[in-house]
């Protein structure tokens, strides 16, 4: 097991927000990032602001959070049969109390980002945040910089909080190769230049970490979340 703190010497803002196209990997990164903060001994609360995704939620990692002493705020309807886009009132606690480190998992696309809008004035006023754009070149609607910028600009229009950094999470799930990560760097660079914000980190499956660590700056290894319902076999 690689200690994540050896890997990325990050300067942690009080609030770290992960937003991006749906399916870009926001939830998984938020979970791993919260663990990273916790390893620093910081008090961490994760808030799931996803009102878009019906099935895959931070709640799936509840046991991991409990084990590491990370607090989780999510809709009481997550993973249930209730299709109500409700936000838990406790989100105000981490936005306003300003005593703990908060990791916010924002819902996908502009529809997901819209839900963030109500907290934005308070976030900007405190001014101790990182708003990270999670991108994945292997996703069909963000395969090039141009399309990715379109999604990013729709999100900013929806939530009115500009991005401050990029998280390159290019992956093909369990089939991701080193080459997939390497070849995505030019793409991430292009997005970074166009938006005028830095690439905060590049993510990879923990299994690829050793092979990539000398070739990719600010590499963040992800221990993947448990796969959904024993799906780890091929059909044919």
């Amino acid at each position: 097991m690689i200690l994540k703190t050896e890997v990325i010497p990050l300067e942690f803002k009080r609030l770290t927000l992960f937003a991006g196209h749906y399916g870009s990997g926001k939830t998984n990164i938020a979970v791993n990032y919260a663990l990273l903060l916790r390893e620093q001994g910081l008090p961490v609360t994760v808030a799931d602001l996803d009102i878009v995704n019906p099935y895959f939620r931070t709640l799936d990692s509840e046991a991991v959070f409990r084990e590491h002493g990370i607090k989780l705020i999510c809709s009481q309807f997550a993973n249930s049969n209730v299709d109500a886009p409700a936000m838990p009132k406790e989100v105000y606690n981490i936005i306003d109390s300003r005593t703990e480190y908060g990791v916010l998992d924002i819902g996908g696309d502009d529809r997901g980002a819209l839900a963030l809008g109500r907290y934005v004035p308070s976030i900007i006023e405190e001014n101790d945040y990182e708003m990270l754009l999670v991108i994945n070149k292997a996703r069909p609607l963000t395969r090039n910089a141009e399309d990715t910028l379109e999604v990013a600009s729709e999100m900013v229009s929806a939530c009115k909080l500009p991005f401050t950094g990029i998280v390159n999470n290019t992956n093909l799930g369990p089939e991701t190769t080193e080459e997939d990560v390497i070849s995505s760097m030019a793409y991430a660079e292009e997005v970074s230049i166009a938006l005028g914000i830095p690439i905060k980190m590049t993510c990879c499956d923990i299994k690829l970490y050793e092979k990539l660590k000398d070739r990719v700056p600010n590499l963040f290894p992800l221990s993947l979340q448990k796969l959904y319902y024993h799906l780890n076999t091929e059909v044919s």
């Binding site: 399916g23 994945n136 292997a138 996703r139 069909p140 609607l141 395969r143 992956n171 093909l172 799930g173 089939e175």
Partner: peptide, 8 residues
């Protein structure tokens, strides 16, 4: 290869 949801 791309990474997709079944719906997409």
């Amino acid at each position: 290869k791309v990474l997709m949801k079944g719906n997409e």
